[in-house]
Amino acid sequence: MSEHIGLNQQLSLGKQQDENQYLTFLMAGEEYGLDILAVQEIRGWEDVTAIPNAPDFVKGAINLRGTIVPIIDLRLRFGIASISYGPLTVVIVVSVQIREQQKVMGLVVDAVSDVYSISEEKAKDVPDFQDSDNGQYVNGLVNVGDKMVVLLSLAKVLDLSAKQVAQG
């Protein structure tokens, strides 16, 4: 039985094995990509409830159909100057496994851009970012057409406890 299932899984996964889909969004003129399977929904910006003594990139929490979801401004997270939120500002709600816990969080970005299929091989091409603060968040850089897309590692971007230690 188990062998059987295993085979099936391999077959169905076969097509995707070298191609993953990424949702991309724009921030300060750059295009970033997220694993599309982590994306739950995309919402417009709405007022949040501030969380006391939270780092500046944590804008607050919203009520997402009964669950409390923290909202993170990715610009501030990456140390880019924030801009005022407008009608195009979107919140991408993602579900990520962080330190063995599944967490739902919202990411504020400038605008959602596109969905690309990117081969795994290409995506694995990571430059050496060791000296850079933000480098740890990057999974890879790929070229789509004549644009460059930064693929993010959500688990690292959203691991708040690690960042706070670094700040302290």
Partner: peptide
């Protein structure tokens, strides 16, 4: 009472959240 910790982390001085 709703948990704030579930998707975020423990916040000092706050025991939870509600809607």
């Amino acid at each position: 009472i709703k948990s704030l910790e579930a998707n975020y982390q423990k916040v000092d001085g706050i025991s939870g959240a509600t809607i």
